[in-house]
Design a binder for these strands. Structure first.
Lengths: 206, 206
DNA sequence: GCAATTTTTGACCGAGCGGACAAAGGTTAG
DNA sequence: CTAACCTTTGTCCGCTCGGTCAAAAATTGC
């Protein structure tokens, strides 16, 4: 965004450390709550040193968001016209649920941004994200016309997958509190996977 | 929390105006992002004047959260053992969806709080909310044992209802962007209602 | 070894914010 | 009318935070 391509290995490593620390801080505290000082010390450097690699706080955030959106949409990108549509959708749901389990910070950061009205990533939403969703909605609609899955609104179907899976990362505190500590994270994940498969499959099977 | 019961009508009205303004600011900007100044001027008074009614910013937030949780859980509280379980669940989903449409600020404020780890309302979650969910989970499980609805995990069912309905308030920016401006808010609401009914009903019918 | 360049840091600045305070203005009871 | 109380406001303070800057330290090229 602001910096040219990182050249040396050291520069790339430092930038990497900063983005990792920034992910941690931003996802826990939001854009305003996370301070440059906190990010810098989490990355093992001083504040002016961080500002040497990224001119402004916004630039760190922007760089983080750019790569985040990429990995975040990968499961949807993988949704393809190979194999059985129902199996394909089941796999999509499971992959999204795995991402909520394995990358909760990314999920929360994204949720936080959208909650605030996506002031910083609206272009990306309007662009790449919308285009991808449009494309996949078409694919899903084709499946419906072929009688492979029940006829319904493909956009709201995608929203439902997003909502139910990301819920386990974004509302983790609530989920853990309500379920109690009886089961570990793995147990919760398996229960959720089983439930969601049942919910979506038996609702989608023609 | 800090102030005794409001006595005069004027005091009650002022407190009401402050809470209304605070809901607006907090839901748009988060706890840190919303300033006392902004809340005060939105409520039509000066900052020190607001501080006269609520000693600290936290007190405004706490008062707001207290009443928020109450109205927020009302639909779940209304879930009762009268009439057909499937109809009851369908009504619950619809009421939750209506709340997302009519009270999006409340939804976003709540989501924001949970996202941050619920640092300020954890006791309420642990107490009232968990107790209510436990109670209703028991009711739902009874329905399952009676063969009225498909056997599955009642807790995750409740999570799924929360996630899918609140998604339309919390991720409104994304939803609107992806769906485009073709349909108004009412159109989106109707589509969502239709889709969710189909998803949940055909997934729950035994 | 030395000069040029890159990286790191301590010190600083200005803006914004939460909150305190005392004084002013308004209201009510006798 | 007046004294006691309630409400409102202007002003101020201390702190935090984003960002600057110049100088020091480290690294690199020759």
């Amino acid at each position: 965004m602001d910096a040219p391509v990182p050249q040396t290995r050291i520069q790339a490593a430092k930038r990497e450390a900063i983005l990792e620390a920034a992910l941690d801080c931003f996802s826990r505290l939001g854009f305003r709550g996370a301070t440059i000082d906190a990010i810098a010390s989490a990355a093992g450097m001083s504040k002016p040193n961080l500002l040497y690699y990224f001119r402004r706080k916004e630039d760190v955030y922007a760089a983080l968001m750019q790569r985040l959106l990429d990995t975040w949409l990968q499961p949807l990108r993988d949704l393809d016209d190979v194999g059985d549509p129902l199996t394909e959708l089941r796999g999509y749901i499971r992959r999204k649920l795995e991402m909520s389990r394995d990358l909760p910070r990314e999920s929360r950061l994204f949720a936080n941004e959208i909650l605030e009205g996506a002031p910083r990533i609206l272009p990306m939403i309007r662009g790449d994200l919308k285009a991808l969703v449009d494309e996949k909605a078409l694919l899903i609609r084709q499946w419906m016309q072929d009688g492979k899955i029940r006829r319904t609104d493909p956009y709201h179907l995608i929203f439902a997958v997003w909502a139910t899976t990301q819920h386990y990362a974004d509302f983790d505190t609530q989920v853990r509190t309500v379920l109690g500590p009886d089961k570990g994270a793995d147990g919760r994940f398996e229960d959720a996977a089983r439930f969601l498969e049942q919910l979506f499959m038996d609702g989608l099977r023609p």
